[in-house]
Design a protein around this nucleic acid. Structure first.
Ligand SMILES: NC(=O)c1ccc[n+]([C@@H]2O[C@H](COP(=O)([O-])OP(=O)(O)OC[C@H]3O[C@@H](n4cnc5c(N)ncnc54)[C@H](O)[C@@H]3O)[C@@H](O)[C@H]2O)c1
Ligand SMILES: NC(=O)c1ccc[n+]([C@@H]2O[C@H](COP(=O)([O-])OP(=O)(O)OC[C@H]3O[C@@H](n4cnc5c(N)ncnc54)[C@H](O)[C@@H]3O)[C@@H](O)[C@H]2O)c1
Lengths: 229, 229
DNA sequence: AAGCGTTTGTGAAATATTTCACAATATTTC
DNA sequence: GAAATATTGTGAAATATTTCACAAACGCTT
């Protein structure tokens, strides 16, 4: 079992306790969660290739990390390996999936059916990964002629009802930047707790709501910085 | 001036030296670079709103970070503020842009003109941010009927020549996962040093090449983990 | 069933990043 | 122009994350 030093070791008694959430689960570092997602995908490929077991060294290499980091990451929520042999691919997959909570399919909605929104809607890759965009919303809902879209494209007026009825907790936001904050507020009011935002602005959301940004310009800027040496 | 403790403080003499790259520039932490990009965008909005100066508190709030973090980030490469007053918006913008190296426009190519690639190609937002997709390549180059695409869509055969002639250093990769590694290798052979990869696999690239991934399924998985409490 | 080679799990060390606390220095007010 | 007020810049402390180093545990061979 892994332990963290709790806050205030200087003034406090230096007690060592496992760091836990209100819910009782042990806190797993943000970065570790990202990597668990990566491990999960590497394991899926290994399984496709017919492998039954994998060592931390091999899996770490596939994931682009060091073996010790992989083992530390796994140590956050259990011990699954067999010393001298490695990990059972199927078992490790399902343990990580359990921990991430992606064992069941999550319903997601998309708001803003423009250029980008349409591309995301027509992408048939999310289902395999445990997510399903079940509906899209737009201020000006139009069904595109030349694309096969399985999901309904609805007006903003019916969104609150839809979210409540389907228990939607996550949304993809692909509206223009000037509307993004306003739409995000609306989503939060409707009960959405996680927003994946493509608009190039910083969203302000309540404490208990999480907004992750995908900002391609920043990704490019980042690349451009690190490649000049 | 900011200083870092160099490696090996336990065995070494505990010498304090500024950490620098081979090129002579001081190393700026990865995360700081990301945040600098965010600050830059917030400053642009402030300027649009007619503000001349801004305090670290106000800018930090706009960027979603703490004021001390903003100041520490800036301290990596200089001191620009006026105590008691704050920062000059225009000056700080150009200093950050200089540091990031985005003062000049970077040419970028895109490989894989499918659903996602087309959406990115037709996006008119990158120019404002200092990037320009100057051409696209596909194994099966077709010009879409119903979209206005300004850039040429070319076959893979002409890519090496194009990259060499235009001094292209960065590429956006939006081909299907099974082709991604192969195309990435090709790009690297042609001299591309930075790849923004949308395919859901971990790319293997040489040390001196940087591959950043945008994996939407992982972003969604991440959200879904942190919203259940 | 003992020995050997392998690989995990994990405390401790090293490194990295964030936050604190406050001196330094500017502006503003009276 | 002195005092009050505001805000930066930065060592040091706190916290977080990664890496090291190695004992413990397993499978396999003989
Ligand atoms: N297209 C890209 O490749 C790309 C790349 C990076 C970032 N982005 C960002 O993604 C977002 C979407 O980009 P896009 O190119 O698809 O834009 P777009 O203009 O093609 O589409 C925007 C859609 O949002 C809808 N919309 C506008 N206001 C709305 C509101 N208040 N409520 C509901 N729907 C509303 C519009 O009707 C339109 O269908 C933008 O913020 C853009 O900056 C796009
Ligand atoms: N569309 C999305 O919303 C979305 C979302 C997340 C991730 N992705 C990922 O982005 C990538 C592209 O997705 P898409 O939906 O645009 O796929 P797509 O099938 O619509 O387009 C892929 C394009 O790549 C071209 N291509 C295939 N092999 C090639 C090769 N060897 N060299 C050059 N070009 C080649 C094809 O001709 C096609 O035009 C995929 O890896 C996908 O998993 C897409």
């Amino acid at each position: 079992m892994k332990y963290f030093t709790n806050a205030c070791p200087a003034r406090g008694a230096g007690l060592i306790l496992p760091r836990v959430k209100k819910s009782g689960r042990i806190i797993i570092p943000r970065k570790t969660i990202y990597r668990l997602s990566i491990y999960l995908r590497c394991l899926a490929r290994l399984k496709e290739n017919g492998l039954d077991t994998v060592s931390s060294e091999a899996l770490a290499k596939a994931a682009g990390v060091k073996p010790t980091q992989l083992r530390k990451d796994l140590a956050c929520f259990g011990t699954f390996g067999t010393r001298g042999l490695g990990y059972d691919v199927t078992e490790l997959s399902s343990r990580i999936a359990d921990e991430l909570g992606t064992s069941r399919l999550q319903p997601v909605i998309l708001v803003g059916v423009g250029n980008l929104g349409l591309a995301l809607l027509s992408y048939r890759g999310f289902e395999k990964e445990g997510f399903e965009i079940i509906a899209a919303f737009d201020a000006n809902p139009r069904r595109p002629r030349n694309k096969q879209i399985a999901q309904p494209i609805l007006g903003m007026d019916v969104m609150p009802k839809f979210i409540a009825e389907h228990g939607v907790k996550m949304a993809i936001l692909s509206v223009p930047a000037p509307s993004a904050q306003e739409v995000a507020n609306h989503l939060v009011d409707c009960g959405v707790a996680g927003i994946l935002n493509f608009a190039p602005i910083v969203l302000t959301v309540p404490e208990d709501v999480m907004a992750n940004n995908v900002n391609l310009a920043i990704e490019l800027e980042n690349l451009s910085y690190f490649i000049r040496d």
